[in-house]
Simulated assay, not measured.
Amino acid sequence: MEAKIVSITRPDVQEWEQLWNSCPYATYFHSPEWAHIWQHYSEGKISPAPVLLAFNDGKKALLPFSIEKACKGLVKSTLSSPAGTYGGWISTDRLAPEHEKSVWQYILREYPNLIIRTNPYYANNSAVPVVPCMDDVTHHVPMDGPFEKIEKEWRKGHRSAVHKAARLGVTVREASSMNDWETYGLLYKDSLRRWGERASSNYRQSLFSIMGSLNSSRIKLWLAQYEGNIVAGALCLYSRHHVVYWHGAALDKYYFLNPVNYLVYDIMMKASREGYAWFDFNPSAGHAGVIKFKQGFNPRISSCPVYITQTFSKRLYCMFSSRIGGNK
Score class of each variant (00 low, 15 high):
2 E>T: 14
104 W>F: 15
152 K>E: 14
291 I>G: 04
303 S>E: 15
210 I>F: 15
295 Q>N: 15
107 I>A: 00
210 I>W: 10
8 I>Y: 08
163 H>F: 06
182 E>I: 08
51 V>H: 01
316 L>A: 10
225 Q>D: 10
315 R>K: 15
246 W>T: 10
280 D>W: 05
70 A>D: 10
211 M>Q: 10
12 D>G: 12
37 I>V: 15
254 Y>S: 03
81 S>I: 01
23 C>A: 13
131 V>L: 12
100 E>M: 07
123 A>G: 06
76 K>D: 06
247 H>W: 09
178 M>V: 05
225 Q>I: 02
314 K>L: 13
298 N>Y: 15
271 A>D: 02
269 M>H: 11
102 S>L: 01
285 A>I: 05
237 L>F: 15
78 T>V: 13
111 Y>T: 07
249 A>W: 03
325 G>W: 04
49 A>K: 08
61 A>V: 05
33 E>I: 09
102 S>G: 07
4 K>G: 06
276 Y>T: 06
143 M>T: 01
222 W>N: 05
309 T>V: 11
76 K>Y: 08
309 T>F: 12
192 L>W: 00
38 W>Y: 15
99 H>R: 01
245 Y>C: 01
87 G>E: 07
70 A>G: 08
214 L>Q: 12
302 S>A: 11
100 E>G: 01
167 R>Q: 12
135 D>Y: 15
157 G>L: 13
70 A>C: 11
103 V>W: 01
222 W>D: 05
140 H>W: 13
158 H>R: 09
81 S>M: 07
37 I>Q: 02
292 K>P: 02
168 L>N: 02
42 S>R: 03
229 N>V: 13
25 Y>L: 08
108 L>N: 06
156 K>M: 12
270 K>N: 12
27 T>P: 01
263 L>S: 00
228 G>L: 06
64 P>D: 08
247 H>L: 10
276 Y>M: 03
264 V>G: 00
241 H>C: 04
306 V>F: 11
293 F>C: 06
165 A>L: 07
43 E>K: 12
